[in-house]
Design a protein around this nucleic acid. Structure first.
Lengths: 171, 171
DNA sequence: GACATCATGTAACACGTTACATGATTGC
DNA sequence: GCAATCATGTAACGTGTTACATGATGTC
């Protein structure tokens, strides 16, 4: 699944949304298994509209800036269903941290420690955010499957934090 | 770090290599934190040569097809060092599996089970490959840091396999 | 004769990133 | 006056993917 299908999926399961709201969901709920930005969201929404897969409605607001609310159309729903039932694609993971360590034979002990510590802090932040967000999310309703994606993320981060801590102690 | 720097890094740390050998290393040793293919390797090698960062030498072989062996040049080494000491970039992770589950409220129980089972099989394969490869790798020499990247991968996959199994049992 | 391994490459395309550019409203 | 939040978008670029295209040598 790519940006296009993910936006369709969000519109299909959460109802009409603005580009801004789509970004919020991606940053908060999909953060640990997908990564998107405005630079992808707005151009994609425009394309989806051009292709007749979504519908745009302008909403004027007085206390806030005006906004464009997008709704999914039947053609969009069909395309999303197709994507949802397509063959499972492999995941991609790229880690600058592991690459640097892999090549980092020439690094000093202090530089290695720094790398490990930075990565540890980073992962810890991610884990905290996941926990914090889960509480928020549960109040607005979360499905069993979505809860599982959170559990999966927590388990992954927790295991990684453990390995990082262990290695830091060893050094 | 991107393809360009990774290839430079491999040539710097492992000595002269062919495109084919670079691919082998990426598939076997970097597999769990980087993903590259011939479609990236050969065009990148050509660019590196054009930029004067690597040197190409044709080697004729009798028992095997002829090959092009690439060596890193001082300019290439400098660029690689720069990349190695640059700020740590965040990682990217994209999981088709988690995306489908996230959106998969409408999926039947059987479809969910299939997804989980497929992902479990997939992760198990990755873990087995990592273990198998480690043995091979250790014989040819592995640095402490490289050993850590393996441990990190094993810990991650193991944790994920556990969550997947638990969820499968629950269903 | 078929298959695995070694070996190299291109062309067209898709996709997303980065940087830029703007601006209203609310609350401190 | 300033920061935070809400809100939208484009242009240029970089990077990698997909599909295609080829072929030698060794081994079962």
């Amino acid at each position: 699944m790519k940006g296009k299908e993910i936006i369709l999926g969000l519109l299909d399961t959460q109802g009409p949304l603005t580009g801004y709201e789509i970004n919020e969901i991606i940053q908060n709920q999909l953060n640990h298994f997908y990564d998107g930005s405005y630079g992808m969201i707005y151009p994609t929404l425009r394309k989806l509209e051009e292709e007749g897969l979504v519908d745009k409605q302008q909403v004027n607001q007085t206390e806030k800036p005006n906004k464009n609310v997008f709704s999914i159309l039947p053609e969009g729903k069909a395309l999303f269903q197709k994507a949802l039932h397509a063959d499972l694609k492999g995941e991609t993971f790229k880690s600058d941290f592991l690459l640097k360590l892999y090549f980092g034979d020439q690094l000093t002990k202090q530089q290695r420690r720094n790398l490990l510590q930075q990565e540890l802090d980073f992962k810890q932040l991610k884990l905290d955010a996941l926990h914090a967000n889960q509480d928020e999310w549960q109040r607005n309703g979360i499905t069993e499957n979505q809860q599982f994606t959170v559990d999966y993320g927590i388990a992954t981060y927790t295991a990684q934090i453990q390995v990082l801590k262990k290695e830091l102690q060893r050094l």
